[in-house]
Design a protein around this nucleic acid. Structure first.
Lengths: 208, 208
DNA sequence: GGTGCTCGTATTGTTGACAATCGCTTCGCG
DNA sequence: CGCGAAGCGATTGTCAACAATACGAGCACC
């Protein structure tokens, strides 16, 4: 039997994968069939995803995929700018030798991806770098918030990765973050991460 | 008839008011009686409060008030430090003349409260100031996050307000925030807010 | 042809009853 | 007397049926 958490996780994964369009209705009966779950479990999953900001509900009108406007994506990025700044600073404080090796490895692979023009690989490495920093910082509260905000932004994130020449700009900023963290300089790490996300925000603004 | 949202709001208010002790069990039947609601509504309310981080649930063991450790309170404050810094900076950017008058008014009343030794009044004004800044900044995402984190911290916040001599230290920091925001200086406003919450974190650490 | 109304269907929200599980108490046994 | 197993009351989790609501099709009237 499928349990509640499983339905929630699969539905979340489907949304993040882009299986549903913004504002698309999520009919409970359909989801039951899709996931082989009872309606009860589907309702609970929807409720959880409402709390995560991925789904919205209207009384008696059911659930639909929440559409994140460009303005909201910018707001979200502004939060990420300061919170991921904190994460970077803290990663710099807590860095171990193994962590440093890991980060420089990601940096090297990023440069190779950009040199080779492999945008998809670079995009994955981008996610990997941010995740690595969060693991190193071990800031539970920050991790939760960033994960949630990141989930709300997947669609815009995808648009970002398709902006021509974005990788090259982004690469230099990421390298600056890595350098500062590896140097165990919290202030520089925070500043570098903020500069990076500031540039993300500027690109988002230019899309409006 | 009591509706879902009402039960949730009343239960949240009761928790924030301190009606329940940390780790106290929340028996569904008792809550039904207390709020005159159906079990269905109580369960939905509990689910919402789990998402807000006020309540925790264990399979087949029901719900209880989530206990926030000192370490977690510090983590939460670290997030608030950067997010409220953003709020202050943005308030400085968006300030109107009426907003300025409001802030200076709060500042004046704060000083009066400290001079008069009225700790409870000062505590209320503290909340009022932070709320005013959030209204001025109009940053939906930040407001949501700060409200949620603040809710998780009420108990520690209360402990803080009882630290002797805390008001006097806090007052100067609040005045610095107000001054920077009224001067429409975002960087100074962010720095002042961060300095303020840094000092809060230090007090929390000293309590451990 | 357009507009407003009525009704039917699809979908969601709610209920009370039932099943599963937990923690405690009691009892049996060494 | 101590320890573990079984039984019991309390509590939570799940369900299938029912009620309420919204959306759209069809119709009457202008």
């Amino acid at each position: 039997m499928v349990d509640d958490a499983q339905v929630r996780d699969e539905l979340r994964a489907a949304i993040l994968r882009g299986d549903f369009a913004p504002r698309q209705r999520l009919v409970e009966a359909d989801l039951c069939e899709q996931f082989g779950a009872r309606r009860f479990a589907v309702r609970a999953a929807l409720q959880d995803l409402v709390a995560e900001g991925l789904v919205e509900r209207q009384q008696n009108r059911g659930a639909r995929i929440r559409e994140i406007s460009l303005d909201e994506a910018i707001e979200i990025s502004e939060i990420r700018r300061v919170v991921e700044g904190l994460v970077a600073a803290r990663a710099a404080e807590r860095l171990t030798a193994a962590d440093a090796k890991r980060l420089t490895g990601i940096g090297r692979r990023m440069r190779e991806a950009v040199d080779g023009g492999e945008a998809a690989v670079y995009s994955d490495l981008n996610a990997e770098l941010h995740a690595a920093l969060r693991e190193i910082a071990r800031h539970e509260t920050a991790n939760r918030i960033v994960a949630q905000l990141h989930g709300q932004m997947v669609r815009h994130q995808f648009a970002l990765s398709r902006v021509p020449g974005r990788s090259a700009v982004s690469l230099a900023q990421h390298e600056a973050v890595i350098e500062a963290v590896v140097a165990r300089d919290p202030d520089a790490a925070e500043a570098a991460m903020r500069a990076h996300i500031t540039s993300v925000i500027e690109v988002l603004r230019s899309l409006g």
